[in-house]
């Protein structure tokens, strides 16, 4: 049973579409979306939100400081 629920915040204007976050998310909660930012970079999205544990590995990998994860709910 998962003990925590996490989520991510994506700063679209800073993302450069490298997909590090998508590839190295340990729970495969992210994917590249159909959305592009103003500079033409393809943005990631949290496509399976229930999988996210808020571990912030995406934040640790993101070279553009454009995504980070955090825990929103702890289940006692």
């Amino acid at each position: 049973m998962k003990k925590v629920q996490g989520t991510v915040v994506i700063k679209a204007d800073r993302c450069k579409g490298c997909a590090f976050c998508v590839d190295f998310c340990p729970t495969d909660a992210l994917q590249l979306s159909d959305q592009y930012n103003a500079k033409g970079y393809r943005l990631p999205e949290l496509f399976e939100p229930e999988k996210c544990t808020g571990c912030d590995l995406c934040g640790l990998y993101c070279p553009d400081f454009a995504i980070h994860g955090f825990i929103i709910k702890k289940v006692a």
Binding site: M1, K2, Q5, V9, E50, D56, G59, F65, H68, F70, I71, I72, K73, K74, V75, A76
Partner: peptide, 23 residues
């Protein structure tokens, strides 16, 4: 999946920890 019967504690949004160190 979250256990529906468990007590959930809401946690406020956290800043990206790198931001406070960046200009």
């Amino acid at each position: 999946m979250l256990d529906q019967n468990a007590v959930e504690t809401e946690i406020p949004e956290k800043e990206n920890p790198v931001e406070s160190l960046l200009r």
